[in-house]
């Protein structure tokens, strides 16, 4: 497969619910209760339980590997967590990723990624360098 600057990728959507957050908490060791306990989240001024920012970033990484192949290495990967992903009880929240190649340097491709939840950009300045 050969790539060109400007190539865009088919959008990739993940559904996220409370049990996904519990599974991510157990796998990552990040048991901060703001990601699991609604009363606690509200007691520290949050609207509701929010997803781990790193869970959203991990899914962005997975979208990228979905586009290029799971065996490909991301040699650099960065993002800013712009808005929280609110996950109400009993709901499946949709996280949608799109990507576009912004540069090609030798055997490495640089991709810009967008991440939206209910039309709101939850990540900004999301970039990855993929070794082909």
């Amino acid at each position: 497969m050969s790539w060109s600057v400007g190539d865009e990728f088919t959008e990739k959507t993940f559904t996220v619910n409370r049990s996904d957050l519990k599974q991510y908490a157990d796998a990552s060791g990040d048991q901060n209760p703001i990601h699991q306990d609604e009363a606690f989240a509200q007691s520290v001024g949050l609207p509701n339980v929010i997803a781990h920012g790193m869970y959203t970033m991990a899914l962005a990484g997975e979208a990228i590997r979905n586009w290029f192949g799971s065996e490909k290495s991301l040699t650099e990967f960065s993002t800013r967590f712009a808005k929280p992903v609110v996950v109400p009880a009993g709901e499946d929240v949709l996280l949608t990723f799109t990507g576009k190649i912004s540069a090609i340097e030798g055997d490495q491709v640089i991709i810009d990624v967008t991440a939206t939840c209910n039309g709101v950009k939850v990540l900004t300045q999301t970039k990855a360098r993929v070794r082909l």
Binding site: D20, A27, S28, D30, M54, Y55, A58, G61, E62, E71
Partner: peptide, 16 residues
């Protein structure tokens, strides 16, 4: 936990 292929290390794995 992130719906990834378990044969490859996710790029965010070291966060834990």
């Amino acid at each position: 936990a992130i719906e990834a292929d378990p044969r490859f290390t996710p790029p965010t794995f070291l966060i834990s």
